[in-house]
């Protein structure tokens, strides 16, 4: 609790700083792509969000596993807090992807492997969130969610593989090439800045959520004691 209070303003400040710097580079101080023109600037939101969507899932599954095996309450809270943030990043990825896809491919949505995998990831997040809130006893929900998150962790590579396979069967893979394999330094700088800004934002929101969760737990404990007449 004390540690989180100390870290909170730093994470928040870092988010603002990196975010503003990243956006400045992304919007004003980087060249338009020779093929994609100005729309390439969507990438600076899209790609870091996509990275974060996976990163949050891995963090969520690992902390859920830690919570399940070593019964550490902080790990449970971290898993629960990560899920909505990860889901939000996934939604940002999908929507920014659609905005990018419209001028590039002429369609809002194509059943491309990456898009489909991202969509499935969103469903995994939503399933986890629905499951942990479906029980009267919040601890039971967290435990059930932990099993699901771990099963999902095994499944994510399988789903990724199968979806890749599926699209190569149906359409050539040439449609999507993320900004080309060799990326210029002028684009790399804002991309990395944004990536770190997103990561700092994640830490900031996660800490906020964990604090809220711990406080809610204390309120519950007080209510319980009230119900048992101990107060």
């Amino acid at each position: 609790m004390k540690l989180s209070r100390m870290l909170l303003p730093w994470a928040g400040g870092l988010t603002l700083l990196l975010g503003i710097a990243g956006l400045w580079f992304a919007l004003f101080d980087s060249p338009p792509d020779y093929q994609q023109g100005e729309t390439v600037r969507i990438m600076y939101v899209h790609v870091p969000a996509a990275w974060m969507s996976l990163f949050c899932y891995v963090v969520m599954a690992i902390s859920a596993g830690v919570g399940l095996i070593w019964k550490h309450p902080v790990a449970d809270v971290a898993a629960k807090g990560s899920a909505p943030i990860g889901a939000a990043f996934t939604i940002v990825t999908l929507i920014s992807g659609a905005f990018w896809g419209k001028p590039m491919w002429g369609k809002w949505w194509v059943w491309d492997a990456r898009l489909t995998a991202e969509l499935v990831l969103l469903f995994l997040y939503l399933g986890y969130i629905a499951l942990i809130h479906a029980f009267d006893d919040p601890k039971r929900g967290l435990k059930a969610g932990a099993v699901l998150a771990l099963v999902g962790l095994i499944n994510v590579p399988i789903i990724k593989f199968s979806v890749d396979w599926w699209t190569t069967m149906h359409q050539p893979a040439s449609v999507v090439k993320m900004g080309g394999p060799a990326i210029d330094a002028s684009m790399m700088v804002p991309l990395l800045l944004m990536a770190f800004a997103f990561k700092a934002y994640y830490i900031y929101v996660l800490l906020l959520r964990m604090r809220a969760e711990v406080t809610a737990g204390k309120v519950r404990a007080l209510r319980l004691r009230q119900a048992h007449g101990a107060v």
Partner: peptide, 8 residues
């Protein structure tokens, strides 16, 4: 007895 506090 008293419930254990949530220690963080």
């Amino acid at each position: 007895g008293p419930a254990p506090g949530v220690a963080i």
